[in-house]
Design a binder for these strands. Sequence first.
DNA 1: ATGAATGCAAAAACTTTGCATGACG
DNA 2: CGTCATGCAAAGTTTTTGCATTCAT
Lengths: 138, 138
Amino acid sequence: MTMENNELRKAGLKVTLPRVKILQMLDQADQRHMSAEDVYKSLMEAGEDVGLATVYRVLTQFEAAGLVERHNFDGGHAVFELADSGHHDHMVDVDSGEVIEFCDPEIERRQREIVKEHGFELVDHNLVLYIRKPKKKD
Amino acid sequence: MTMENNELRKAGLKVTLPRVKILQMLDQADQRHMSAEDVYKSLMEAGEDVGLATVYRVLTQFEAAGLVERHNFDGGHAVFELADSGHHDHMVDVDSGEVIEFCDPEIERRQREIVKEHGFELVDHNLVLYIRKPKKKD
DNA sequence: ATGAATGCAAAAACTTTGCATGACG
DNA sequence: CGTCATGCAAAGTTTTTGCATTCAT
């Protein structure tokens, strides 16, 4: 029994071919953050015949099951990433598009403090730092 | 000459009725964060006949001119806010949709530190805390 | 007057849904 | 085998675009 099957069972999801293939794709693809369209096209290129609607449905189920995280970066379309490693935030190089992951305990702690000071509890958060390599002249 | 006209001129935008009305609406509306649809409906209710396409176009121009900021909170549609006050981040109540603005110097400072440690400079950032009123039982 | 801005409608981009068929347990 | 998942196509949302007309300078 494969790794993916176990993940799906643990999540309470029936082990179907599309689900396994999508999970594998998220795990193996070069890019860690993929849109539904990205996943769909990658599957097609790999010769896997999965409908785009199924990709959307499965990704949504994966999100509900905690297997993936959905991010709403700038640009109108959602991207998904495997929730295998722990929590982290993102830096995006505005020139190259490169994405760097990081996690800073100080910021995380301060976020919870701020929310608490306002009488709320923190459900989730989204932090993206847009960065660039320093240039001598701009 | 009104305040709005000056803003538009400074931004290098021709002073047209739709632009003035949209800018006024963003300034006067009860909600500080409005979607294009919000702005459009408010204008209609106010008896101002502006096309939805124009609202989108004008808001995009305003963003390019630095008059407004566009935010991609969760939920598929962008919201815009007047860029009149200084920088701040946002808390969004996931139950009510209420938006609270805040600015925390400690987080701001730490962001710059982290970026610097990675050999980059900070161009911009986007922080949204998704929050909820605590409940005794969930 | 002349070039830019607008309104409308059509289209594009992204995502969800209905329903008949097919696959998992 | 019964039920849930899938595929396809159609519809829903949000946003953009083409084009004739109107408006600002």
